[in-house]
Nucleic acid binder design. Sequence first.
DNA 1: ACCGGGATGGGA
DNA 2: CCCATCCCGGTG
Length: 206
Amino acid sequence: MTRRRNLVHPLPEPLDQSFYNQSTLQLAQSLLGKLLLKETDEGIVAGFIVETEAYMGPEDRAAHSFNNKRTKRTAIMFGEPGYAYTYVMHTHCLFNVVSGSVDDPKAVLIRGVEPYLGQSVMEKRRPKARKLSQLTNGPGKLTKALGITMDDYGNKLDHPPLWIAPGRTVEDEQMNSGPRIGIDNSGEARDYPWRFWVDGNAFISK
DNA sequence: ACCGGGATGGGA
DNA sequence: CCCATCCCGGTG
């Protein structure tokens, strides 16, 4: 008897540590097109990253690590890049990729992904999504769809259950940038064009 | 202990 | 536009 399996062969290979050794603004753009994968007992779910935001740490009033603020929550950002920084926003878990070298607490927020694997599992987890685009077109939506939780805090992104693979190429001409979302109380930082997205993609948050 | 705010999402 | 809902961080 054959068994349905939510697996792809070969499994998308994780990006290695050298990928994360680039400046945060470059990383935020390089992450566009990369494949974000999460494995749970419901199978592997994955999506192409289509929208990101850079948070520039000590110099960025919108960043949780502004002025080098170090708390239990921000601690992971002070370590090596390539780790998961998750935190709770209202009722949602938001997912960031830690950037910057040790003691340079920067991060890239993932704001939108395009479903690639496990769409039916995502739909089950996001019953309120009325259209396909609503499944994963926001930072809180995509964590719910992918099954990313606070349990993923601090985990390195080069192995299951949560990892990032090369995915597909996004040309520079397809990339767009503009001010970040939801940081109106961050003074001049609110206008910095540190949000990046794939032009015309249906899974952009706004 | 208490209290206020927030990198959101969904519904009126 | 409003608000649910909740963890974290600052304060006392």
